[in-house]
């Protein structure tokens, strides 16, 4: 479903260009869940950003169900983010000025695919029913990440990209959130590519990829 070939990415730094990705190729099948591991600074987030159309590669190709993503313009990439690929970050996923309910529905409404029943189901599954009128800053970290998961699933994306979604959480909460994420991804029949440092969490996914020296192993 998602297929990336030979991705290169470098950043300009004060000490000259920093080559982060040196020809990464990756495939994610529909409904599959994949863990991405690697040392800090190895380029996991960078890769995720490329796949999520948040950034563009220097070279290489990315296709989503056969459609090329790597040469889309800003509007095209925004459309992909809106409709096909959801991203969950470690923190600050939510729009501070909107309530939980509004946050949950925001992306779906932007994309014009709001399904109230599905929305209710997500809220129920994620245990957010009682929090709908709160603002993000009034939630705990775990609660915030649950809202982020709900929001990302609301559009029933082909692919959910998660960058250490439980990195800020304690182990119990992290497990709980992980359960909900996997359950949700399953229900929406989305594929999942998740960055994590935790071998324990990685083990719960179908497959584990390791990024080292700019390449996947």
């Amino acid at each position: 479903m998602l297929s990336a070939r030979n991705l290169f990415k470098s950043f300009a730094t004060s000490e000259g260009p920093l080559q982060v990705l040196r020809g990464v190729s990756v495939d994610v099948a529909a409904g599959e869940s994949v863990a991405l591991t690697g040392e800090s600074g190895s380029g996991k987030s960078t890769l995720l950003h490329l796949l999520g159309c948040l950034d563009t590669p220097e070279s290489g190709t990315i296709t989503l169900q056969g459609a090329p993503l790597h040469d889309l313009d800003e509007a095209g990439r925004a459309a992909i983010r809106r409709r096909h690929v959801s991203v969950i970050f470690q923190q600050l996923n939510l729009i501070p000025s909107l309530t939980v309910a509004q946050n949950l529905a925001f992306q779906a409404r932007l994309a014009g695919v709001l399904d109230p029943e599905w929305q209710d189901e997500i809220a129920a599954r994620l245990g957010l029913d009682t929090l709908l009128d709160r603002y993000p800053e009034q939630l705990s970290g775990g609660q915030q990440q649950r809202v982020a998961i709900g929001r990302s699933l609301a559009i029933r994306p082909e692919l959910v990209l998660a960058d250490e979604p439980t990195g800020n959480l304690d182990e119990t909460t992290a497990d709980n959130v992980m359960d909900l994420l996997l359950d949700g991804v399953g229900r929406s029949r989305s594929a999942l590519l998740m960055v994590t440092h935790s071998p324990r969490l990685a083990a719960r996914l179908n497959r584990v990829l390791h990024l080292r020296e700019g390449r996947l192993t």
């Binding site: 948040l54 800003e74 509007a75 925004a78 459309a79 992909i80 983010r81 809106r82 409709r83 991203v87 970050f89 600050l92 996923n93 939510l94 729009i95 501070p96 000025s97 925001f106 992306q107 932007l110 994309a111 929001r151």
Partner: peptide, 15 residues
């Protein structure tokens, strides 16, 4: 930035 970044990440163009 924190207000705007999520909106952008959710697929709203900078324009």
């Amino acid at each position: 930035l924190p207000q705007v970044a999520p909106v952008w990440a959710l697929g709203v163009t900078p324009g």
